[in-house]
């Protein structure tokens, strides 16, 4: 798949404050999570992508176009900003329809698209109410509706899950999945890592304005060889299994917990997982559960951000 977003040595600073520093990244289509702690530069990157601001240095293209004030590009993208700002005196439908009209649709068509988008974010019951009366979650969903209403090729969403209750979060994540499956490219930023991971394995991790990691969560974890991977097992006879593990060179440390728990640290997780079934069968130790707690995005994030 070809890259939809290409940034080369992109830097952006606000006076003396550095927003992004020499960021070079190439993002392919599909659903991608832009992750990083608060103040990492996620929002700055997104603002650059949608042409709200220009890079102070470097080059950036989105869908092959330079973003700033590019009307051709704006027809193809949708942006859901982070800030809780709407035209409060308007009704939900009016708000979305008014913004959709700016794409060149007729009043009737804009209205139809606005209603459809509001239905997709489950706001059909509230769309005739004034936006100023909406709850925080409803406002967030309205922002999302205005971004998807015109059917963009690329959806850029800044912290879309903040302010949503668990049900709305689930529905929103489902919506992104649907959009992704329908061929829309989605780039969403978040610092709630497990939610990003539940949606996509493709991540771009930035910290202090710099690119820290990029790729699938598993691939990134594999690259972090200096951090041994922890595997947590629950077995019937943990001590026998631990004794057997000590024969492996790649096993660095073993810890027992509770009566039947065992934490193993390995420097070669692939070999470990290849050898484990045979070993367990041979010893008859009865593995009850197996998990790798530091293979998730949260652990990678902790390793990289420190």
């Amino acid at each position: 798949m070809s890259a939809i977003i290409v940034a080369k040595d992109v830097g952006r600073w606000y006076g003396e404050v550095v927003g992004l520093s020499d960021l070079s990244v190439s993002i392919e289509g599909g659903v991608t999570g832009l992750v990083g702690p608060n103040g990492a530069g996620k929002s700055t990157f997104m603002k650059l992508l949608v042409g709200e601001i220009r890079p102070s240095r470097g080059a950036l293209t989105v869908l092959g176009e330079t973003p700033f004030a590019n009307l051709r590009l704006y027809r193809r993208i949708g942006f859901c900003p982070q800030q809780d700002a709407l035209y409060d005196h308007m009704r939900g439908r009016e708000f979305v329809a008014a913004l959709v009209r700016l794409y060149g649709f007729s009043a009737k068509e804009s209205n139809r698209l606005a209603i459809r988008a509001l239905e997709r974010v489950h706001l059909e019951d509230a769309m005739e109410r004034k936006v100023g009366e909406y709850s925080k979650g409803m406002r967030q969903r309205t922002r999302l509706a205005q971004a998807i209403a015109h059917g963009p090729e690329l959806l850029v969403v800044d912290e879309p899950l903040s302010g949503l209750d668990p049900v709305a979060r689930h529905e929103t994540l489902e919506l992104f999945k649907e959009l992704g499956e329908a061929g829309t490219h989605v780039l969403l930023s978040s610092h709630v890592l497990h939610e990003v991971q539940s949606l996509t394995q493709e991540i771009v991790l930035i910290h202090r304005g710099r690119l820290l990691a990029q790729g699938s969560v598993g691939d990134v974890r594999r690259l972090l060889s200096r951090h041994p991977r922890r595997v947590r097992l629950t077995v019937r006879e943990p001590r026998r299994l631990a004794e057997a593990f000590l024969r492996f060179d790649h096993v660095g440390a073993i810890r027992f917990h509770d009566d039947d728990g065992l934490d193993v640290e390995t420097r070669d997780v692939e070999t470990f997982f290849k050898d484990l079934p045979a070993l367990a069968t041979e010893l008859g130790v009865g593995i009850k559960s197996l998990e790798s707690p530091d293979a998730d995005l949260e652990a990678i994030f902790d390793y990289l951000v420190g």
Partner: peptide
């Protein structure tokens, strides 16, 4: 000030 300019500047309209 209301931070709504984002909506207008990311639409295909001449600024």
């Amino acid at each position: 000030e209301n931070r709504t300019i984002t909506y207008l500047f990311t639409r295909p309209i001449p600024r």
